[in-house]
């Protein structure tokens, strides 16, 4: 069986790229000049349709503004990767605010009843994004960090039950036919559920079929054979 790594963000990790794309509200501490100018030039290069030219006239980062510059005090929603680059030890062009789903009100809900909350609707990358957020030097950072850990622990039982539910019936929580409770999971939890469930199904299959079945061929071998077959048919 191939090496199955638990999710760890790295340079090429798509999930990490998506998680850092999530937006948070940022307030500009200084004027940022000429982004409108840039936008007009850039739009002509990158896009080549009339819609693009309309957009080009507006400010790059703030499509709703007609100014060439972004004034101090403007609040915009910026993706995390940009916000972090603009607000760190070297630069404080913006100051960040925590998105409302990580604020006090939502935190209280999650502490009380984590297992019924629809994390997917709140934010697909709830844990990852929250984890990055708690890295900002904000007064709520530690609270958010603790919240994520607590939330994960509270919801784990659900994931384990669903992964080990051999009938594959995921509507057992009594929410009515047609509602799939696993749709309420965040991306991280869903990854755990998928791997957990596939290994459980393998075990159930083994228990019901009895012993002595051969070990399947490795993916590497199957792919190699497929490639050889493809090469043979091409040549």
């Amino acid at each position: 069986m191939p090496l199955l790594r638990s999710y760890t963000p790295h340079y090429f990790s798509i999930d990490d790229i998506m998680a850092t794309q999530e937006r948070l509200p940022c307030k500009f501490e200084v004027d940022v000049l000429r982004l409108g100018e840039y936008c007009r030039n850039q739009a002509k290069i990158i896009m080549s349709n009339t819609t693009a030219l309309k957009v080009a006239k507006k400010s790059f980062l703030d499509p709703s503004s007609d100014d060439e510059d972004i004034k101090t005090g403007t609040t915009l929603e910026l993706p995390y990767w940009l916000a972090r680059a603009l607000c760190n030890r070297n630069r404080s062009i913006v100051s960040v605010n925590i998105p409302r789903i990580y604020k006090e009100a939502y935190r209280e809900i999650l502490k009380a009843e984590a297992s019924v909350v629809d994390l997917h609707r709140l934010c697909v990358y709830f844990y990852e994004f929250g984890s990055y957020l708690s890295g900002f030097n904000h007064r709520d950072s530690t609270e958010i960090g603790n919240l994520l850990v607590q939330c994960f622990k509270d919801r784990f039982r659900l994931i384990m039950d669903w992964a080990q539910n051999s009938s594959g019936d995921t509507s057992g929580s009594g929410r009515g036919a047609g509602s799939d409770p696993t749709a309420r999971l965040d991306n991280l939890e869903r990854g755990l559920l998928i791997t957990g469930r596939s290994s459980w199904e393998a075990l159930e299959a083994w228990l019901s079929q009895g012993g002595g079945r051969p070990i399947g061929p490795a993916n590497m071998v199957v792919n190699h054979q497929k490639r050889q077959l493809a090469n043979a048919s091409v040549s």
Binding site: T8, R89, F136, N137, S141, T142, G145, V149
Partner: peptide
């Protein structure tokens, strides 16, 4: 991973 807070600094 979640318990290890990442500081932006």
């Amino acid at each position: 991973r979640l318990s290890t807070v990442r500081f932006v600094f």
